[in-house]
Simulated assay, not measured.
Amino acid sequence: MNPRKIEFILALIAGITGIIAGITGIASGGILAAFFGSEELSNATSMTATDSEVLVAAGGFAIIFSIIALVLGIALLVFAVLIKRNAKVFGILTLVAGAVGFFLVGLLWIVPGVLAIIAGIMCLVRKVETV
């Protein structure tokens, strides 16, 4: 039996859901930027040009942070594969990637973040018996 199977599965699911969170963030940031950048909305809601520019900039930042979260999701997939080689190093990297995602996309990162943090802690704490 594979000694790090649980950590592998948790990190793999974290990576897949992290990719989904990144793509969702990119889409929502694009919709935010496109929706609030339209002149029809600012005319209909009496928003000033400054308000509209700020909301478009917020959508741009959401896209940038979501792209970084997407890269973290892909990195979690790579870490899941490499956990079996060096559990301590990739456990720390998985733990850090899981924590950093919360600062990037917030609530979208709940599932991948919690799973990555659990997998990282298990890699660092759990002793595997060699047969």
Rank of each mutant, 00 (worst) to 15 (best):
L77D: 12
S42D: 00
A62G: 15
F8L: 00
V105E: 13
I31Y: 04
R85F: 11
I117V: 15
V89G: 00
A27Y: 14
T24N: 09
K88V: 15
M1F: 11
G113V: 10
T50I: 10
L115Q: 04
A116T: 03
P3Y: 05
E7K: 05
V128W: 09
F102N: 00
D51C: 05
S46E: 14
T130M: 14
M122V: 06
V105C: 01
I67Q: 00
V100K: 02
A34Q: 11
S46W: 01
T17Q: 10
V114T: 12
G60V: 07
L41I: 13
T17H: 11
V56N: 05
A62T: 09
A62F: 08
I68K: 02
S28H: 12
G106R: 02
L10A: 10
S52F: 09
L12R: 10
A97P: 11
T45N: 13
L104A: 08
A44E: 08
V89I: 15
A80T: 03
E39N: 14
T48I: 04
G120L: 13
L41D: 04
A57F: 06
A97Q: 06
A21W: 13
V125T: 15
K84H: 15
A99E: 05
I92L: 14
I117P: 11
S38K: 05
P112Q: 05
M47P: 07
G15T: 03
A97K: 03
L124Y: 01
A69G: 01
F61R: 01
C123K: 05
K88A: 10
A58P: 00
M47Y: 15
S28Y: 12
G91K: 12
L41H: 07
I6V: 14
S28I: 09
G120E: 04
N86Y: 11
A80R: 01
V111N: 01
N2H: 12
I67G: 06
A87I: 11
G22V: 09
L124A: 03
V96E: 07
I20Y: 10
A58G: 00
I23L: 15
I118F: 13
L55K: 03
A14K: 00
L107Y: 13
D51W: 07
A57Y: 04
V111H: 06
I117Q: 08
L41S: 05
R126W: 07
G120S: 08
E53Q: 15
S28Q: 13
M1I: 09
L76W: 04
N2A: 10
G59N: 04
G22A: 08
G101K: 03
G73V: 00
L93I: 03
V128M: 00
E39R: 14
V114P: 00
I68M: 03
I20R: 06
L12F: 15
I23P: 08
A33G: 08
I16Q: 09
A87R: 14
V71C: 05
E129K: 15
S52L: 03
K127G: 06
I19G: 07
I6C: 07
S28N: 10
D51K: 02
R126H: 04
E39V: 12
K84C: 06
S46K: 13
A116K: 02
T17A: 00
V125E: 02
I110S: 02
G120I: 08
A62D: 00
A58D: 09
A69I: 04
G25W: 07
L32R: 06
D51V: 11
E7R: 02
